[in-house]
Design a protein around this nucleic acid. Sequence first.
DNA 1: AATCGCAATTCAAACGTTTAAAAGTGGCAT
DNA 2: ATGCCACTTTTAAACGTTTGAATTGCGATT
Lengths: 347, 347
Amino acid sequence: MAGLTLRELASKLGVSVATVSRALAGDSAIATKTRERVAEAANAYGYVPNVAARQLVSGRSGFVGFVMPVRGPNFIDAYLGEFLTGLGEGLVEHGYDLFIATVPAGRSELSVLRHVVESGRADGVVVPRIGEADERLGYLIERRFPFVAHGRLLDGAAGHNWLDADSVTAFGEAFDLLYDLGHRHFGLVSISDSMTFRHLRERGLREAMTRRNDPTVTLDVAAAPRFDRGATVAAINRLLHAERRPTAIIGLFDELALTILEEAARAGLSVPRDLSVVGFDNITAAAYAPPGLTTFEANTRESARAIAGMLVEVIEKRPAEPLHRLIRPKLVARASHGPVPDEPRRL
Amino acid sequence: MAGLTLRELASKLGVSVATVSRALAGDSAIATKTRERVAEAANAYGYVPNVAARQLVSGRSGFVGFVMPVRGPNFIDAYLGEFLTGLGEGLVEHGYDLFIATVPAGRSELSVLRHVVESGRADGVVVPRIGEADERLGYLIERRFPFVAHGRLLDGAAGHNWLDADSVTAFGEAFDLLYDLGHRHFGLVSISDSMTFRHLRERGLREAMTRRNDPTVTLDVAAAPRFDRGATVAAINRLLHAERRPTAIIGLFDELALTILEEAARAGLSVPRDLSVVGFDNITAAAYAPPGLTTFEANTRESARAIAGMLVEVIEKRPAEPLHRLIRPKLVARASHGPVPDEPRRL
DNA sequence: AATCGCAATTCAAACGTTTAAAAGTGGCAT
DNA sequence: ATGCCACTTTTAAACGTTTGAATTGCGATT
């Protein structure tokens, strides 16, 4: 399958394989003239080293692993594509490639991760979507295997490498924006899954609330399982038809915010006149859904690129202290937020 | 890095490495009792074979390669994520993993592909987005390296493995739908890049036109470079402000169709009253952009899954005849198409 | 003239598997 | 006793690299 071997190239040049190997590695023990001659021949014959052999002796694979998150049948967004694009871009700069493992039906994500690590197919892994008691992180930490998490643990975030969106700050910013527009009754549409970002985002909101020290402010939280559309719609309508309907509802992420827009329209509420809605992520559809969703740009691609850089550092330098990095999301102000209505519209 | 080796496992069991290797491979030359004993021990000790060693001797990597298409700074859609998800799902069923190579700045996609093939890192590759004279296919065919293209060549499609959306039929269907609603003046917003799907889709439209044999039917095509938003907008406005404005404009894919919707709104045209618009792909935003884009579901994830199956067949069975597969897109009728207006609105 | 030092190169082992070929073990017919 | 066969296991080579240790060649030093 592969073309030329080192041995063949060496015999063509009339030197030993060791010389060729060292020459190509740029070893200064090899005479400059020889190095050039070898490089030239390698180039001319199109020599490409066999990675399996190299990997076997060096113990390094040159791969970074990524276990594809298991997703429902109609998961819809650009997140994964952007993330993988950024990861690939970041890795290729350092000479690494990306290896993607999919979880077969009926097996756990952890078991696949374990297999990736123990088969020696990857020098490090990227772990997305961190849960509250994430067994993947526990495993990797214990095994001292290089990894960077996209997201962080709530307790013990100091103990692992991560890059995360600064959603605490972003959600505080969302609150301030709306508070300054006169809103006092807030709603948050959240998920009931045990992802840590749920807590961080809600915390951002509550901390900003506390800072205002305004007893008239209220916050109602409605949550539903992440991929359960029916329950999500029900949760949203609980807020919309509550005794005292919030004048501003924040979606934990854009899919939820878009559903809020849909349900508000269905209920006869005009956004932003009767209701302000804010999301997070800035997915493509956020720009198209009327009247244009105000949200935060999470910059997935750049984040992934940064994660790649961090992971390479962890693999090659094994820093003593865990690496942490917060990415500040940027407000994308569209048309779904506005001043508090003078008087709530009756439904 | 890796845990237990075969040798260690063998010595624990008091047999030779060959026996253990064969037992784990399920070789019937090994006594059933021994096979069971080995399997048990392997399981108990958590033995995971080193892939590099296995790959070195077998010459197979267990990987399918994918060279990430080079993309502009703000490419936006779910295509890549869906495609990779489907590919991963399809591959894992057959015991393959996915390996993603990114093209570094300043290098060609072909050179990266060549490297992937010749380093022995992949047993086969998937090639997306086929161009008119695609040098990647030429290389792979000449090298007899297993691959499946997503999309096909115009000439010589018979000579390579591919899976493609049946966009000829779909665009014919779009034409018929609109013709039956009374439309006679059609516009097509296309791209000027040399991708083969451009021709196939336009062909679908023209063939359906020919079938009607109606001399009053006209078709104006406006094209712009794929990622050039300014030129795209200009091309669309050329159609919208033409002497005889089309009453139905078809976008080669949804991004274009959505831009048509935006420009129509800006020009004061109401969709579908004054203008019908149809797209292709059914991206997420198609559902959110008012009034809801009528389009075709390309089912990327399922296609990718099927591609995985085809590629594994090519790798393992080396069929004499190239494999071809057409996927029929399904019309997603939303609200952007309607009957031809009685009288064109003046702009 | 013998020895040393040093640069350049080669030798050979190792990485952890797979697999063709050889070898060992009993049982059974001759 | 001998040979043969079927079944099971082992031996050893091979895959294509990297790399520590050994070797070579040669000018400089004694």
